[in-house]
Nucleic acid binder design. Structure first.
Lengths: 337, 337
DNA sequence: TTGAAAGCGCTAACAT
DNA sequence: ATGTTAGCGCTTTCAA
């Protein structure tokens, strides 16, 4: 049972496919097609339940009404929540989302962009990985709308929605220092992007400004590709070896969650003598005993800005001179618990 | 800068576009195109970085290499995890995923199927909502591959991957009874699908088999569309009014999480006198003090089965007689903590 | 006010 | 062994 085509509708209505097309695309008025014709055709479309083939339409118009979403890991609650919001808003504007996770793998990311390109997605929302500069620049050179979020790549002029991470970790460390902490550890992922470096910089600056000397020993790097078990091993080793640590700041929510598992195994009590703060909030931190403080990123605002930037760019007339890029910098918020 | 087309390649290579097409599609051998021709063309394709336009290909072949994924809520960790696994495996087979969340809204679900249809997705992976029977049956009648998971719809013969929920909640309640619990509450969502009913049935049967009389009062329904605050209100009211409750089974992970928030607010101690079990596991339950038991669903197995069923169906020759539907029933596992 | 027809980029039957 | 060409379903220019 082949689906209906515009031809079938035209035949049923005894009109040309042009007329049907105009009516379908709301151009009937402009083309001054008679009201009765419009009603008649619309009735037939209704009755037969005809839906235009979007693939054919895409081939013809060169636009697919699809946005490619490339995140680090869709199963991370942070990205899942944003993806959900983005999808929602895109949907309301007639766009669909095709998503994929890079797992911070450059080759995979490149492959995804390539694949999205062959699918002619109209725009890209990307959580970039280092090394992707050239691919993104290529997209920009072709006037393809791109918005990056969560991280930026140095030297790349592109619409971006970022959070002031340095300020976030600065505030977190500052609060720990005010609580009298002296040996504050920083656990981070080895992803080489500016935002992760910023989180570290915020940590370092807060120490410096308080006259505390930073110690290399208290900075632990966890490879992104580590399995949960490997991460656990690294963390256990780290905290066992450095017993003087009296507070720790985790640079991402999943690392903090791994950390909590680790402390549980080590039977480390998280009382006032040992404070934990996570970058990114999570239900877990609210329910944990004791509750875990967090530097919260404004997920709604991020999604809101990302989608409105991409929609704006999608709607822009790229034959005109290039519009300047928008760089949105949002604030994070320290939730002290 | 217009992207290259097969024509450009043909011109550069001084061959017809047919030759290029055959080479692109690995049909060169079969068409007995000379080895040197193949190499020459492949080299040009390489050098120019030509990628065939998938939209044109789709229009021509009628296949988009895209699978529509329709879940309840992509930001629910359970669905996010499965989505991630499905995406991964689909990707390896050259398929992309377009996803959307129904929020258990029938109209939204219908709209999604309609939209996916216009986009000619090759197959559907659906977490169905009641009332969607007709739409799914339509797809099946058109020989469109469909796999449902997490829930089934009565009277619908379709590939499905389900978990034996009744057994799961039975085991959970049985374990509570063995611990001497007498007033076991059941908190569930008001979604009217078989699997939710099964979870309730397992609860009821476990009570019955132990000679405990079930009480309507101990069965609390939470509308899916409730906001977290509304849910909190309902739960607080429920547990305050029914102080005799000494154990509770939540039918989904997010309800259990809401429950934990509620207990925290009520200062209810979750010691041996008050036990909580969730259907679906979650990191939160492992880290909670005390740890929360859970009926764990085999996420990997679910994803694995879903994807292999859909790929099998996608590869099947639908001109032949219809293959019987596959109904996979997986076991859940009670994790006693 | 409506219709004819070209063409988006590709595949594959048919021709040579 | 390789080329010519029709046509997938639609939009849009041009003509009537």
């Amino acid at each position: 049972m082949k689906p209906l085509s515009i031809k079938d509708i035209a035949k049923k209505a005894n009109v040309s496919i042009t007329t049907v097309s105009f009516i379908l695309n709301g151009k009937a008025e402009k083309m001054r097609i008679s009201q009765e014709m419009i009603l008649k055709v619309e009735k037939i479309i209704q009755e037969l339940g005809f839906k235009p083939n979007q693939v054919a339409r895409s081939l013809r118009t060169g636009t697919t009404k699809t946005i490619g979403l490339i995140v680090e890991d869709i199963s991370n609650p942070f990205f899942a929540a944003i993806a959900r919001l983005i999808e929602d808003k895109a949907y309301k504007h007639g766009y669909k989302i095709i998503y994929s996770s890079t797992e911070n793998d450059l080759e995979k990311a490149k492959g995804l962009i390539r694949m999205f390109k062959t699918r002619q997605v109209d725009g890209y929302i990307i959580v970039p990985v280092t090394g992707l500069e050239e691919e993104i620049q290529d997209l920009l050179n072709n006037n393809t709308p791109v918005v990056v979020f969560d991280r930026s790549l140095p030297g790349l002029d592109v619409n971006s929605v970022l959070v002031d991470c340095a300020a976030g970790t600065y505030a977190a460390v500052e609060s720990l220092i005010k609580q009298g902490k002296k040996n504050i550890a920083f656990v981070t992922v080895d992803v080489d992007v500016q935002q992760i470096k910023d989180r570290y910089a915020g940590y370092m600056n807060a120490l410096k400004d308080s006259g505390i000397k930073a110690s290399k020993k208290l900075h632990q790097l966890i490879p992104f590709s580590s399995t949960p078990d490997e991460t656990a091993g690294l963390l256990k080793n780290f905290f066992t070896k450095n017993a003087e640590i009296d507070a720790v700041l985790f640079a991402t929510n999943y690392l903090a969650v791994r950390g909590l598992f680790c402390f549980k195994e080590l039977n480390k009590t998280l009382n006032g003598d040992f404070k934990v703060i996570s970058y990114d909030d999570h239900d877990i931190f609210k329910l944990h005993s004791p509750e875990i403080s967090a530097v919260d990123q404004p997920i709604d605002e991020i999604a809101e800005n990302v989608i409105s930037l991409i929609l704006k760019d999608l709607a822009a007339d790229h034959t005109l001179e290039k519009a300047p890029f928008n760089q949105v910098l949002l604030k994070s918020r320290l939730i002290s618990r």
